[in-house]
Amino acid sequence: MLSDEDFKAVFGMTRSAFANLPLWKQQNLKKEKGLF
Rank of each mutant, 00 (worst) to 15 (best):
26 Q>L: 03
16 S>D: 14
5 E>G: 06
19 A>W: 06
27 Q>E: 15
27 Q>D: 14
3 S>E: 07
28 N>C: 13
36 F>K: 09
1 M>K: 12
29 L>N: 01
12 G>S: 03
16 S>E: 15
8 K>E: 15
2 L>A: 04
34 G>A: 06
15 R>S: 05
13 M>Y: 08
29 L>S: 02
5 E>T: 06
31 K>V: 11
33 K>D: 04
22 P>Y: 02
8 K>D: 07
26 Q>D: 00
7 F>Y: 05
34 G>K: 06
13 M>S: 01
1 M>Y: 14
19 A>Q: 12
16 S>G: 11
10 V>C: 05
33 K>H: 11
29 L>E: 04
11 F>Y: 11
35 L>V: 13
11 F>L: 04
1 M>I: 14
17 A>W: 03
20 N>I: 08
34 G>W: 06
21 L>D: 02
35 L>N: 09
28 N>W: 15
25 K>T: 11
21 L>R: 00
5 E>H: 07
22 P>T: 03
5 E>N: 09
8 K>H: 12
11 F>H: 03
20 N>E: 15
15 R>L: 07
29 L>R: 02
21 L>W: 02
19 A>F: 13
34 G>R: 09
26 Q>C: 01
20 N>Q: 15
10 V>Y: 08
24 W>A: 06
19 A>T: 08
4 D>V: 04
4 D>H: 04
32 E>V: 07
28 N>Y: 14
5 E>I: 07
25 K>G: 04
7 F>V: 01
30 K>S: 11
6 D>G: 08
23 L>M: 10
5 E>C: 06
36 F>P: 11
11 F>V: 04
28 N>G: 08
26 Q>G: 01
21 L>N: 01
15 R>W: 04
14 T>Y: 03
28 N>H: 14
15 R>I: 06
30 K>D: 05
23 L>Q: 10
33 K>A: 12
4 D>A: 05
32 E>W: 06
4 D>W: 05
24 W>L: 07
15 R>Y: 06
15 R>T: 04
20 N>F: 05
24 W>K: 06
7 F>S: 00
16 S>K: 14
17 A>D: 15
30 K>E: 13
5 E>V: 07
1 M>C: 13
32 E>H: 08
34 G>H: 08
35 L>Q: 13
23 L>E: 10
24 W>R: 04
23 L>Y: 13
20 N>V: 08
13 M>D: 02
35 L>K: 09
11 F>E: 01
17 A>E: 15
2 L>S: 06
15 R>C: 05
22 P>I: 02
1 M>V: 11
7 F>D: 00
2 L>Y: 08
26 Q>Y: 01
12 G>Y: 01
17 A>H: 07
15 R>K: 15
25 K>L: 15
8 K>P: 03
28 N>I: 14
22 P>E: 05
15 R>F: 04
33 K>N: 08
34 G>F: 08
7 F>Q: 00
13 M>L: 05
19 A>N: 13
13 M>T: 03
18 F>G: 00
16 S>R: 11
28 N>T: 12
10 V>W: 11
1 M>P: 12
29 L>G: 02
19 A>I: 09
33 K>Y: 10
18 F>N: 00
10 V>L: 15
34 G>S: 08
20 N>K: 15
23 L>A: 09
3 S>I: 04
31 K>A: 12
36 F>V: 12
4 D>P: 05
25 K>P: 01
30 K>L: 15
2 L>P: 05
22 P>H: 01
29 L>W: 03
31 K>L: 09
10 V>E: 06
6 D>A: 13
31 K>F: 11
12 G>V: 00
8 K>V: 14
34 G>V: 08
27 Q>N: 14
34 G>P: 04
30 K>G: 08
13 M>W: 03
31 K>S: 09
23 L>D: 10
17 A>L: 05
24 W>F: 06
2 L>N: 05
9 A>M: 12
27 Q>K: 10
12 G>E: 04
32 E>L: 10
29 L>P: 02
21 L>F: 03
8 K>S: 07
6 D>P: 02
19 A>R: 09
24 W>C: 09
33 K>P: 04
6 D>M: 11
24 W>Q: 05
5 E>Q: 08
27 Q>A: 13
6 D>F: 08
27 Q>S: 09
28 N>P: 01
14 T>F: 02
25 K>Y: 10
30 K>I: 15
4 D>E: 12
22 P>R: 01
35 L>S: 08
36 F>A: 12
13 M>E: 02
22 P>C: 04
25 K>N: 10
4 D>Y: 03
23 L>K: 09
2 L>D: 07
12 G>W: 00
9 A>F: 12
22 P>Q: 02
23 L>T: 08
12 G>M: 02
11 F>D: 01
3 S>T: 13
34 G>E: 09
6 D>S: 07
24 W>V: 06
3 S>V: 04
36 F>W: 13
19 A>D: 14
10 V>K: 11
16 S>W: 11
30 K>T: 12
10 V>A: 07
11 F>G: 00
32 E>T: 10
21 L>E: 03
1 M>N: 12
7 F>T: 01
12 G>R: 02
36 F>H: 13
7 F>N: 00
28 N>F: 13
35 L>W: 15
16 S>L: 12
21 L>S: 02
14 T>V: 03
36 F>M: 14
18 F>S: 00
27 Q>P: 01
2 L>R: 06
21 L>A: 02
15 R>P: 09
22 P>G: 01
9 A>P: 02
4 D>R: 02
22 P>A: 03
8 K>Q: 12
9 A>Q: 10
6 D>L: 09
21 L>Q: 03
5 E>M: 08
17 A>N: 06
17 A>P: 00
6 D>I: 09
11 F>M: 09
15 R>M: 07
2 L>G: 05
11 F>T: 04
34 G>Q: 08
35 L>D: 10
7 F>P: 00
15 R>V: 07
2 L>W: 10
17 A>S: 06
20 N>D: 14
9 A>D: 11
32 E>I: 11
25 K>H: 13
21 L>Y: 04
16 S>P: 07
33 K>I: 09
11 F>N: 02
17 A>F: 05
12 G>L: 03
8 K>L: 15
26 Q>A: 02
14 T>D: 11
7 F>H: 01
10 V>R: 09
3 S>G: 05
13 M>P: 00
5 E>S: 08
35 L>A: 05
31 K>G: 07
8 K>A: 11
20 N>Y: 05
13 M>G: 01
18 F>W: 05
12 G>T: 01
32 E>A: 12
3 S>L: 05
18 F>Q: 00
10 V>T: 09
14 T>I: 04
19 A>G: 10
29 L>D: 01
21 L>V: 01
9 A>H: 11
12 G>F: 01
32 E>M: 10
15 R>G: 03
19 A>M: 14
30 K>R: 13
1 M>E: 13
23 L>H: 10
13 M>H: 03
9 A>K: 15
35 L>C: 15
2 L>C: 11
16 S>F: 11
29 L>H: 03
11 F>S: 01
24 W>H: 07
26 Q>I: 02
7 F>R: 00
7 F>G: 00
33 K>T: 07
21 L>P: 00
32 E>G: 07
23 L>I: 11
6 D>N: 08
4 D>L: 03
5 E>D: 11
9 A>E: 13
16 S>C: 00
18 F>K: 00
23 L>F: 12
33 K>E: 04
8 K>G: 03
9 A>N: 12
14 T>S: 12
35 L>R: 10
9 A>G: 08
9 A>L: 13
4 D>S: 04
31 K>E: 12
3 S>Y: 05
20 N>A: 14
31 K>H: 12
